[in-house]
Design a protein around this nucleic acid. Structure first.
Length: 913
RNA sequence: AGGCGCGUAGCUCAGUUGGUUAGAGCGCUACCUUGACAUGGUAGAGGUCGUUGGUUCGAUCCCAAUCGCGCCUACCA
């Protein structure tokens, strides 16, 4: 006997091990290819709600496609996350008092690999807890040898084609991490700043000056011009003259450019080309000198002793003081401005002139735009195309070098004259360029942006550049499941690289899912303290531990109290252990086409209850015992069998369509209502009533059990992709201990649909519902058996009653059904179902007044509907313009309503007499 | 500034080419511990679909305007 409560923790880990040991997640090598690439998570990261959500959807699709008989590959793997990982390891070393540079490159990288091997499988373990059916056999890591070969080849090929170049340019420099960043790794947000207005004297001893406005006075040290708008009457006379830069005393020209906004600030702008992207563009245009005033840590680097080596913020203070002393500081005002920060270090980005490697992106982007325009790749939902085009049309060259140690080292060598040689390795470079052994070659110190290797993920994981079977079979992959936040970082770049190097798009569809937020719509973040760990929803967590998890290691420790308070309020009893299946079903049911997903714990609880419902339905079926049945009898169906089989056929088709359209929410909902309403509330109840009949034959009994089991088995098959654990457990317990659910084919609707429509079962459901409703309205306790009298029945009703009255009696808790005329006495309550009038006798004196009220209320409900339909039907334009079937349906409905109203009126009349 | 999106029941969300009485879960109310399940059963209350116009026989859906909110992109010193 199975437990009467569903307990997920007992079954989940057991089944995952079984599946993995039996290698059932590897491609079958039979059938149509179906392939999804996991967006490789950061190897040193942990699973968050976004991952859990995404993984659920991918897993549903993969499990579903395996059951369809497809040759399914869900590619597993992680990425090396250059900056993030290096940061973590450096921080650990710092805690031990060791610096990266003390250790040296090789030893440091050894440390990172050590760290990777001890922390790297945290996330893969968590993926297993989610039930993810990834093909672990072919797990890849972006720094694997094979993937590195791909990275090198792509770099070399692009270089030789002129699509990768090295250039000295202004880049986004992270002074803390000491590396360049791409545009996408810079997060700009509004912060409070100031504008300082400063006197710049002309160098003609006239005492005249220009007032310039700046938000960064420290960059005065790098000024090489002052700019005004050519149409600005105030300054026209100064154009072409020179001014003296404060502090440095440098003489610089006043130039004119219509880039300068006359309305903003003082209308007069200082130009620091070495540390501002706009100024840099102006400098190129006007041939201005470009001075670099900062070192890589953003400390001042200049000849003036008192400023040299000063941090940029200290330099600002000092300069402002000096300006004040010389009476050149005119005005200070508060100003909201956009501050760029590194997405990892959160330090303020300093534009810095450095040598970096770039990908010339326009030619690649053009191809990538084309294949989306021509629908080689389809976005779901479609409007994400717009975001994609928007970015692709304004794309800038991609800075791919990073001044890190952890990553793919750039395959470029330099001789002593700094000539560049690009090739696989030093040996091949020497051969290729015919360089003698006595010429010293040194490799570029830098590594590539992690996203460079990620952009090759869809084919490098399959063995490319080798022409492997896997590439041939699984590329292009079927669909990419991803969040919109990495459309630019990753999706667009994969398309460019895939098109360029394999010649085909990397995936045919891109399903873009929403962001998982908390139940009130806030982004989940450590600093807000509203993070939920998916594993805690599976295993449960106590309040103390949850608070501990949320309020420790905060960037702003002062938030701890508030987080503690809110957590106590939101989860007074901690979080219950809902199990993976309930969590997965929740994610599926939330996966609609909307943009954000507000995650409400209550939903998980509801679906945990759903698991319990299924569990108990299975328990009931199991309790009916084993059966042996003659094959010849298995197609012997009762009315309710036909009824439920028709519904099952519809469910199967709906589910397939919903998966095809990525409407996981619809799929989840229709499964839920079929299982709970149709199967549990009606079908099992009907069968139960039949099983309880005294004179049941063993053949009848066996047939009932057989049919109950058959529907249940199909429920398990249909539900398996979303809830793999509970379905597997029930299947093994009730049906087959030897094989897995996945070994079965997904159900075929044609096996269940019939031409007969089971009208009588629907009729019965209406009658039972009507009686239940009235019972409840007149306050009859659910456990009290009552008698009903049927009047107004036609031939069809008679026939249905003949076959179904015993069912009605059980389901509506009736002790006796009498057929007869309404004797017009007041001792009856009545209800109407279809064209029937059902009377419920009362032994007590009926409160005539309240009964008339009840009936009148019911009548007015119907009357209101009648009025609506009648007004439509009396409108000649409606008759003329509306499609025929709408008009016919209205007419039919009106007829039915009128019958029902007349029955109620009759009863009201009886009471009134 | 530009782009995208959202506003439907107390809460979290559906609503598929415009068409009967706008749905689900949770919560709420009443009654029920009947042997699959109280993580349950039966029934119920609750919505002028942000606002205002327009198109239409008919609008939650299409169009325009407006209010509120969110996200992304962007060089205003």
């Amino acid at each position: 006997m199975i437990d009467n409560k569903y307990n997920p923790s007992e079954i989940e880990e057991k089944w995952y091990k079984e599946w993995e040991n039996n290698k059932i997640f590897s491609p079958s090598n039979e059938g149509n290819a179906y392939c999804i690439m996991i967006p490789p998570p950061n190897v040193t990261g942990t699973l968050h709600m976004g991952h859990a959500f995404q993984v659920t959807l991918m897993d549903v699709l993969c499990r579903y496609h395996r059951m369809l008989g497809d040759n399914t590959l869900w590619q597993a793997g992680t990425d090396h996350a250059g900056i993030a990982t290096q940061m973590v390891v450096e921080r650990k070393l710092t805690a031990q008092g060791i610096s990266r540079t003390d250790l040296g490159r090789e030893k440091f990288i050894d440390q990172v690999w050590d760290w990777k091997s001890q922390s790297g499988d945290i996330i893969t373990k968590q993926l297993r807890r989610m039930g993810a059916s990834l093909d672990w056999e072919s797990e890849r890591f972006t720094l694997d040898e094979g993937l590195s070969v791909a990275v090198n080849k792509v770099f070399i090929d692009l270089y030789e084609e002129g699509l990768i170049y090295k250039g000295k340019r202004l880049v986004n420099w992270d002074p803390v991490l000491q590396t360049a960043l791409s545009d996408l790794e810079v997060i700009s947000s509004e912060e409070n700043g100031k504008i300082w207005e400063i006197k710049y004297y002309l160098d003609d001893e006239s005492g005249n000056f220009l007032e310039i406005a700046t938000t960064r006075p420290e960059t005065i040290l790098g000024d090489t011009a002052v700019a005004v708008n050519p149409d600005d009457d105030r300054f026209i006379k100064y154009i072409g003259k020179n001014v003296v830069v404060p502090v440095t005393g440098k003489i610089v020209p006043v130039i004119s450019d219509d880039y300068v906004d006359m309305e903003f600030g003082t209308g007069c702008l200082k130009i620091t080309p070495g540390h501002d992207f706009n100024d840099y563009e102006l400098a190129k245009k006007h041939n201005l000198e470009i001075i670099n005033i900062f070192d890589t840590s953003a400390r001042v680097k200049c000849d003036t002793k008192e400023y040299n080596n000063l941090d940029r913020f200290a330099a600002r203070k000092k300069i402002l003081l000096e300006l004040e002393n010389s009476d050149q500081l005119l005005k200070i005002s508060d100003h909201k401005m956009i501050i760029p920060r590194g997405d990892r270090s959160h330090s303020i980005i300093e534009p810095l002139m450095t040598d970096q490697w770039y990908v010339k992106i326009k030619p690649l982007a053009e191809e990538a735009i084309k294949c989306v325009k021509e629908k080689e790749i389809k976005f779901v939902p479609e409007n994400w195309e717009k975001t994609y085009f928007e970015w692709m049309n304004n794309i800038q060259d991609w800075c791919i070098s990073r001044q890190l140690w952890w990553g793919h080292r750039i395959p470029a060598w330099y001789d002593e004259e700094k000539n560049i040689y690009v090739g696989k390795n030093e040996k091949s470079v020497r051969e290729k360029y015919d360089i003698k052994d006595d010429v010293l070659l040194t490799q570029d110190e830098d590594v590539l942006d992690t996203w460079f290797s990620s952009s090759l993920w869809p084919f490098s994981t399959l063995g490319w550049p080798n022409e492997t079977e896997r590439v041939k079979t699984f590329y292009p992959t079927s669909v990419l499941i991803t969040g919109f936040d990495i459309i630019f970082f990753w999706v667009a770049r994969m398309i460019m690289m895939g098109k360029k190097f394999v010649g085909e798009v990397p995936f045919k569809e891109i399903y873009v899912h929403g962001l998982v937020k908390d139940s009130s719509g806030n982004k989940m973040s450590k600093s807000k303290g509203n993070i939920i760990d998916p594993i805690d929803l599976i295993d449960g967590i106590g309040l103390e531990e949850l608070i501990n998890k949320r309020a420790s290691d905060l960037m702003q420790p002062e938030m701890a109290e508030k987080i503690k308070k809110n957590t106590k309020k939101d989860y007074p009893g901690g979080i219950g252990a809902y199990g993976t299946d309930a969590l997965r079903f929740t994610f599926a049911s939330l996966a609609s086409n909307g943009r954000d997903i507000n995650f409400d714990l209550k939903r998980v609880e509801g679906y945990r209850n759903f698991c319990n419902k299924l569990w108990n339905a299975a328990r009931f079926v199991k309790m009916q015992g084993q059966i042996s049945i003659d094959q010849a009898d298995t197609n012997n169906f009762q009315d309710e069998d036909i009824w439920i089989r028709n519904k099952l056929a519809i469910l199967i088709e709906d589910t397939k369509n919903n998966y095809k359209n990525y409407r996981f929410d619809y799929a989840a909902r229709s499964l839920y209502s079929f299982i709970w309403q149709d199967y549990c509330s009606w079908y099992i109840e009907i069968k139960k009533s039949k099983l309880n009949k005294k004179n049941i034959t063993s053949l009848e009994k066996n047939l009932i059990i057989h049919n109950l089991r058959e529907i249940l088995k199909n429920i398990l098959l249909l539900l398996h992709p979303i809830m793999p654990f509970i379905t597997e457990e029930i299947y093994s317990d009730l049906f087959n201990e030897k094989e897995f659910l996945q070994d079965n084919k997904y159900p075929d609707s044609s096996k269940f649909s019939t031409s007969s429509d089971a009208e009588n079962v629907n009729w019965m459901i209406e009658v039972v519902s009507a009686i239940r409703k009235t019972r409840s309205e007149i306050g009859v306790q659910p456990n009290k058996k009552i008698e009903i009298i049927v009047t107004g029945e036609n031939d069809k009703d008679k026939l249905f009653f003949k076959n179904l009255s015993s069912l009605i009696m059980t389901l509506a808790n009736i002790k006796n059904i009498r057929f007869g005329e309404d004797d017009q006495s007041n001792k009856f309550y009545s209800c109407v179902s279809n064209n029937l009038k059902l009377l419920i006798p009362s032994s007590d004196l009926i409160d005539v007044k309240s009964e008339i009220e009840r009936l009148t209320k019911e009548k007015s409900k119907y009357t209101n509907q009648t009025i609506g339909i009648e007004s439509r039907l009396s409108n000649s334009n409606f008759i003329k313009n509306a499609p025929g079937h709408i008009v016919v349906a209205d007419e039919q409905k009106l007829k039915e309503l009128k019958i029902q109203i007349s029955k109620i009126e009759e009863q009201i009349k009886n009471f009134s007499n």
